[in-house]
Nucleic acid binder design. Structure first.
Lengths: 338, 338
DNA sequence: AAGTCTGATTGCAGCGCTGCAAAAGACTAT
DNA sequence: ATAGTCTTTTGCAGCGCTGCAATCAGACTT
């Protein structure tokens, strides 16, 4: 049996298909009598518009895609959790894609590809793709970038002030009296912008306190996972003069670092204080609970969606802007103790 | 400027549009010469098929939707992480939806709705929806259900053997010498099937060991989150005769329970051993690391996708089957100590 | 050499909807 | 009554592709 179509409804209601379409789409100029007639017919037939046909006719899919490197990274999962309702609110479905940080995969997504028409816009959290790569994208794709890229003026960027946030974190460690503060997570290469901003904040806090930076206490990691944190911490502890505090570039890194510390019989924060970044839920339940920088994820999600909607609906090119969401420092046991 | 279409390519290559379509879709009966001509034209024009038009013509969207209650629950995030590549492998994009366990939302998704045509099939992890509700779904929707529902014969169900797995977990606690074993997470109402199966396993293990079950040690929770575990554990510890081991119905519950135990100065596992369920990544890094039941998530994802593809491509109704993925017990510090 | 068969290519029609602009209808002002 | 204005409804055409069945060309049979 065929699905009921616009035409069927039109026939039953005794109007033209176009009028039915007008009713369905809430077009204003329809008399109440007509509207009611049509609505009754719709109800009677259980008519549902065919989204596929509408998509073809309008050239829009009513979907946006959110691209993150890893879905099982709590930070991204939590962010996605915030983006989906915001997008649905705006009448859009959300496709999800994960890139594993693969630059080729990321590049193929932002360039003009086969899947292009499937979504009207993209919220993108790049990892493997450098600023450079990002600029070779399809200029027709409405794009909002999350995280720590800076906009080149053709897309929007939403994030928190990483330098300030990192500086806050390190200032907190200084304030509780730590003197040898390490940083775990630096990535001094093109795709490591996020990390570099945090390193900048690390330096800024030292400068503000009139302290020199011990460069050897800045440890790089390939990623921001627990394992990276655990290994980096081990390296730091193997030194003759280990740190008494660590600023970790993600909560997962912090979690890994704490794991190593406890395993070696050290106390957190008494022997080594630890602060993370992201405020993922785990951090509130571990032992010790993890002090962290909490970005306002709801605000990031809402801002990104709003901005993307604007881009999608605007016919002229929209100049790219930098949008900052709030962040705050949340001290917990890993710096303050119980 | 218009996008290039099939027709443009056909003109340039000097063949009919239909032939171009045949080449694009890898239809076998095309001579090499023709194919080459067409492919050259495609390359020259940078032609990309219009997915929207194809969707309308074929009546398929090339998308499946994965519906989970919560995206930021690590178990679902990890599962999704496995499903996405499997689906892409099969040529499908993945839409993601979260229901917050809201029965109305869940019901609207499985019933014939406006969004129906957007996806060719659904992988669904129900929470608020009872077995009963599930059966009123749109019978035309290819559906694979994850978790702990039993199939009514019109859809497939993929999961692990919850009763056996739970029994394994409890048997492990018995084997390490515990005598007063509690269970956290029971949900003795229609939508709590998952929980009930685990409770069954809990009893089965006791029975197998010839032990009586202390019913008062079975504690219910509304959900399977950390907070639920933390609160339930507190209740158990407030008793005159607290347990010396706990079987938690999820790793998050276990994490919450451990949090409470440590906060009260008890040792895990010396005073109270804890075992969880799901094998989420967190459990491998906390302190102590959490013993758990590990479902084979990759297998679950692959099986679900395979089965869904079968349903989508089959013209006749496919009888629903119960599919079991493997699980194994992973003992860690929370039962064995360091 | 005509007839048959196989495989390659093509034309038609239509998926179900919406954009556009014109037609029809209702209402106002002179 | 008539022209002019505004509102509501309609018809046409087409979005770009694929299903289907017909056509065509060449090879093979007898």
């Amino acid at each position: 049996m065929r699905e009921t179509t616009l035409r069927d409804v039109a026939e039953l209601a005794g109007v033209s298909p176009r009028t039915v379409s007008n009713v369905v789409n809430g077009y204003a100029r329809v008399t109440d009598a007509t509207r009611e007639k049509v609505e009754r017919a719709i109800a009677e037939l259980g008519y549902q518009p065919n989204v596929l046909a509408r998509n073809l006719a309008t050239g829009r899919s009513g979907q946006i895609v959110v691209v993150v490197p890893y879905l099982d990274t709590p930070y991204f999962a939590e962010l996605l959790q915030a983006i989906i309702p915001a997008a649905r609110q705006a009448g859009y479905n959300v496709l999800v894609d994960q890139t594993d940080g693969d630059p080729a995969h990321e590049a193929s997504l932002v360039s003009r590809g086969a899947r292009r028409l499937l979504f009207d816009g993209m919220i993108f959290s790049p990892l493997g793709l450098s600023q450079q790569d990002l600029s070779v994208r399809d200029p027709a794709l409405p794009l909002v970038v999350l995280g720590e890229r800076t906009s080149d003026g053709t897309f929007d960027h939403v994030g928190i002030d990483d330098v300030a946030a990192s500086s806050d974190a390190v200032a907190h460690l200084i304030k509780i009296g730590r003197t040898r503060i390490a940083a775990i997570g630096d990535q001094p290469y093109p795709t490591g912008e996020a990390a570099q901003l945090r390193t900048r904040g690390f330096r800024a806090a030292h400068a503000a306190a009139g302290r020199p930076v011990d460069e050897t206490l800045i440890v790089g990691t390939a990623r921001f996972n627990r394992l990276d944190g655990a290994q980096a911490m081990a390296t730091l502890l193997d030194r003759a003069d280990p740190p008494d505090a660590v600023f970790c570039y993600s909560d997962l890194v912090a979690s890994g670092a704490i794991h190593t510390l406890l395993q070696r019989g050290l106390r957190v924060p008494e022997d080594v204080a630890v602060i993370g970044y992201d405020d993922i839920e785990d951090g509130r339940y571990g032992r010790p609970t993890i002090s962290t920088i909490s970005p306002d994820k709801k605000a990031i999600a809402q801002t990104a969606v709003d901005r993307l909607m604007l881009r999608i609906s605007s016919s002229e090119p929209v100049p790219g802007v930098e949008l900052r969401a709030a962040h705050r420092l949340i001290p917990r046991e890993s710096t303050l103790g119980r």
